[in-house]
Amino acid sequence: MSQPAPAVPPLWHPDAPSTVVQGDNLAVVADLPDASFRLIYLDPPFNTGRPQARQTLTSVRSEGGAGSVIGFKGRSYERIKGDLLSYDDRFEDYWGFLEPRLIEAWRVLADDGTLYLHLDYRESHYAKVLLDALFGRESFLNEIIWAYDYGAKPKNRWPAKHDTILVYVKDPSAYHFDSAAVEREPYMAPGLVTPEKAQLGKLPTDVWWHTIVSPTGREKTGYPTQKPEGVLRRIVQASSREGDWVLDFFAGSGTTGAVASALGRRFLLVDSNPAAVAVMRDRLAACEPGVRFVG
């Protein structure tokens, strides 16, 4: 009599080690359980190409099984439609690529969790329409502007030197946000406040002045879209607690994992690019010796 095949352990569970997965992020995230992650940070490829044809975008919001659209693994959604322009240099249908991944991000976000979606100025307003439909407008928390001052400066328009980070919470009455945990920054005009306040510094606002990763600095990995640890540090400090799970399924150089590890959080990172996973192996080995690599 043949023995039954051993059960395949789940990719993720609450007691798993911090993990890096090489694979298609949509397939990976579709296998994760609902409401698993306190914090999700997403930095998808920026859609920086020339204008293409107008298309209809279908955005969806979970309605507890009562929706008219059957999605991943039999889950149902209510369909909401709107016209958006498509701008595409890497995908035939950028929003067709991103939309199902945002649906899955909503599903695996904890009830008191927060999503940070990092985009550039070309796509952020379209993303907000989609996220308003998916999360509900009342779940919109912030639009963070990350401003920097490096790179090319055209002479025929104002140079674009910022990214946009859209912040949404699963439940606007029960999300986690700890301003006391965030590193404070200097006042721009310290003479206008008391010496005590000037020494303490101020809580960052929704405009973050922070340099890009220095080409010669200690953080530099050589990965082309690497984000600075200082930006992720604010996000992780404010919207998660020690021991919480952080998810990033456009992981790139692994900045989210490096910061999460340094702050005592656990992480699940996903990327399909073997070069990204190779960078993460080198980078995370030093800060997270027990990290597991899958795929």
Rank of each mutant, 00 (worst) to 15 (best):
Y150A: 14
P154C: 08
A147Y: 12
A133S: 12
A160N: 14
W158L: 12
I145N: 01
L131R: 02
D111L: 12
A133R: 09
G136N: 05
L115A: 04
I103R: 09
F140W: 11
K155G: 15
A105H: 01
W146G: 02
A127G: 06
Y116R: 05
N156E: 11
V108A: 05
Y94A: 14
R101D: 09
S124V: 11
D112P: 05
K161Q: 15
D120Q: 02
Y148K: 10
E99N: 12
Y126W: 08
L134D: 00
A110E: 08
D111R: 15
W106P: 00
F91P: 00
D149H: 11
R137C: 08
N156R: 13
I103W: 00
Y126P: 01
Y121H: 14
Y121T: 12
N142H: 12
H118G: 07
F140E: 09
W146L: 05
A105K: 01
Y94R: 05
E99H: 11
W106N: 10
F135K: 03
F97K: 03
E92I: 10
F97Q: 06
L134H: 03
L130Y: 10
Y150Q: 14
T114Q: 04
S124F: 15
N156I: 06
Y121D: 14
Y121V: 13
W95D: 03
N142Y: 09
A160E: 09
E143I: 06
Y94S: 11
R157C: 05
D149E: 09
L109V: 03
N142I: 00
L98V: 09
R107F: 10
